[in-house]
């Protein structure tokens, strides 16, 4: 029986006169891949920042494995569209950056960084500085950095939003492979409907003014997925459904 990893209980946030996120409840199962899709201003990033502990919600609680973590940091992995690699550190040292920010980096930490980098196609670039890498490579490094935090829950906020379509598809397949290998739980923000369907077990559709969840859909598409998935009738049907929800049902 799947266990609940993360639970939002009536979490809401208001900035001035704007309801960024109406009181929202959401439960995420351990090991699942949940996509959150919605236009800008729907409160998805606000929700992420609340879960990450960067924002204190006006009400409600964030519960991880049964313990309240509301407005406290250090409980999740977190990655943005901006890779946020530091230019003064090599790929290897960027991967261990999260560790370096909390304690001394050990030889074991470095060995692990090298191992995951080699396993997922970055082995030749360990001693490179980020400036020498392409956008896709940089996002891989940023994801490795998120991975070696050993947090079960990974929050990915449009991580491939700045990549070209070809690279994005490669990265999506790559991400699915890493996710399958590592058994982490992923919460993935995107405004790209195709991406949300291609990656997830479940799609949470959000809507702005006020930011809120309007639908929570199971994704029945079988795994493993590949380019062929994009042409399945179920894919098209689900896409029509999500687009309909996003555009007020006038599809």
């Amino acid at each position: 029986m799947p266990t609940t990893l993360l639970e939002l209980r009536e979490v809401g946030k208001v900035f001035g006169d704007t309801v960024a996120l109406a009181p929202t409840s959401l439960a995420i199962e351990e090991g699942s891949f949940v996509a959150i899709v919605g236009p800008s201003g729907c409160g998805k990033s606000t929700m992420f920042n609340v879960i990450a502990g960067l924002l204190r919600p006006d009400g409600g609680e964030v519960v991880l494995r049964g313990a309240t973590i509301t407005a406290t940091t250090g409980h999740v992995g977190y990655m943005l569209q901006k890779d946020l690699l530091v230019p003064w550190r090599t790929v290897e040292d960027n991967i261990t950056m999260a560790t370096r920010l909390t304690r001394r980096v050990t030889d074991e930490d470095r060995a692990e960084a090298r191992r995951v980098a080699r396993q997922y196609g970055l082995g030749e670039f360990l001693r490179h500085y980020p400036s020498a890498l392409s956008g896709g490579m940089r996002q891989r490094v940023a994801f490795m950095r998120t991975l070696v935090t050993h947090q079960q829950l990974l929050l990915l906020d449009e991580p491939f939003g700045a990549l070209d379509a070809q690279t994005r598809l490669e990265m999506q397949e790559w991400l699915l492979r890493v996710w399958k290998d590592t058994g982490r739980t992923v919460l993935f923000i995107t405004h790209d409907v195709d991406e949300s369907i291609f990656l997830s077990d479940r799609i949470v559709v959000m809507s702005p003014r006020p930011g809120r969840v309007v639908a929570d859909l199971a994704n029945p598409l079988p795994r493993p997925r590949g380019i062929h998935t994009l042409l399945e009738p179920e894919f098209i049907a689900l896409k029509a459904r999500v687009l309909g929800l996003l555009h007020g049902g006038d599809l």
Binding site: A52, G53, L54, T73, V76, Y78, L84, A98, T102, T149
Partner: peptide, 8 residues
């Protein structure tokens, strides 16, 4: 912020 999320 990233450093904060990591608990730095």
């Amino acid at each position: 912020n990233l450093a904060r999320v990591y608990g730095a």
